[in-house]
Design a protein around this nucleic acid. Structure first.
Lengths: 253, 253
DNA sequence: CGTAGTTTTGAACTACTTCAAGGCGCGTGG
DNA sequence: CCACGCGCCTTGAAGTAGTTCAAAACTACG
């Protein structure tokens, strides 16, 4: 009963932007103080959803963009023949949904990987606000640009790096992002399955598994199911410096 | 002398947006007629550049965005260790430079692959105009979004498809894009080297070469150096339907 | 006509995939 | 509270697509 009472209390306690713990990671960080209130008033705060819940699906019309408050999601899209590609994993503070600006229709699906709470911002309002508040537009373009360059680096990773290097980079990147969000950068609780990691990194799930065990044998990691402790970050970073495939020639000369 | 005279004449003949042959592919297509003139006045039209010229380099501050009028370019970025990844090939009508919105600094370099003419639009002016003309913002987000989803598909292509399928898709895509621009969709003059194609598709250059010859032996293509004729588009499309690697499991269930 | 860059071809090698099977952990229902 | 069953994960062994190395053929261009 006490527990139930707490849940209700939590849901009622709509923390708005000025008070939010993620203030410094989220969109409002770029806004002048005066505008934050207006921004906050457009947002539906802290919607809770269980694991496996879809924020939206590929093909849905764009209605809102979302901000992850706690938890994590994966985004993926499917080709006509059913092949799926995980586009990315998103953590607290990430902005989601802008993939749909293309045609007003979402290009990929978003599923929660664990209990997750999100803030929801109706898209039309966001677009209006953009025109009044130049900084907001800038902030959003920044998010989009970051995602794009992330995608490019991932392509390089996948097409020019071996499996060990891919996983090392994946773990270091995740570690850094969790660190930015106030979690431990050495003790990671992976929210995604090996299959997800494999798909994301462009290798077979078995290869991911084997690589994990090899890392453990080398003393780089302590792995217990999805609980991963980074024992030797420097060692992981070393793997990172070994290009294994030929590099691009500049061509055109 | 006659020739020299013509060159001068060409450079003087600054065709502006309302008269441009690419009107329907370029940004102004989304603008109300009244705004096109204002847009056009901000643009430096039809700058000519030889093959191998850089529009900008990775790390350069963002000063302008560019629109390709004729010719083609490739964009690539380099990791710290020197590995390079070709991000994309751009043809007439493509908008270039928005990769820099992230931090005001370009995330990749752009080189011309042949004689190319571009229109240049100073970025600050573009941003100002965005706030007055909502449609322009929309048009730009659309471009960015398209590029993003193109990147995602490419990741799927690279991590889940075999070399033959990658090349087939590459050729069909190029064919379609050239077709949209009024060129022949069956007789392609590839502006990029085999190394470029290889890097873009995430395989070795030798593999690209071998795949080309196999396609020719199968009667799918007629290949003469960079001149490629598509003899059997349907056949190429068939290759496209053969996923060769395991597909993503949905995980999370 | 020679040089440099690009492309093709050949042959050996290997990192990763695929197939197959066993183990482990967790939630469910008895 | 324990046993059952289903996913998830790991491990092994065999196969292969693609890489790497090496060198020759071709093209363009001065």
């Amino acid at each position: 009963m006490n527990a139930e009472h707490n849940v209700v209390a939590l849901e009622r306690a709509t923390v708005t932007c000025p008070d939010c713990r993620l203030r410094d990671l989220c969109i409002p960080r770029g806004l002048p103080a005066a505008e934050v209130g207006e921004f906050a008033s457009m947002v539906r705060h802290g919607r809770l959803m269980p694991r496996g819940h879809y924020l939206y699906r590929q093909g849905d019309p764009l209605s809102s963009v979302f901000l992850i408050k706690t938890g994590s999601v994966k985004s993926y899209f499917a080709a006509e023949d059913g092949a799926e590609q995980i586009v990315g994993f998103h953590l607290a503070g990430d902005l989601i949904g802008l993939d749909a600006v293309e045609r007003g229709v979402h290009g990929c699906s978003i599923v929660t990987l664990e209990h997750t709470s999100v803030c929801e911002l109706p898209y039309p309002r966001m677009e209006q606000l953009c025109q009044r508040v130049p900084d907001l537009l800038h902030e959003i373009l920044l998010k989009v640009g970051t995602e794009m360059s992330r995608g490019h680096q991932l392509r390089l990773l996948i097409s020019q790096r071996g499996a060990e290097e891919r996983l090392a980079i994946f773990l270091l990147d995740l570690s850094a992002r969790l660190g930015e969000r106030g979690y431990s950068p050495t003790d990671l609780m992976l929210p995604m399955s090996r299959y997800d990691i494999a798909n994301y990194l462009g290798v077979a799930a078995e290869t991911v598994s084997r690589t994990f065990t090899r890392f453990e044998q080398q003393g780089l990691l302590a792995v217990d199911r999805r609980q991963v402790r980074i024992r030797d970050a420097a060692g992981l970073r070393t793997l990172t410096a070994h290009p294994q495939a030929a590099m691009a020639r500049s061509g055109t000369r």
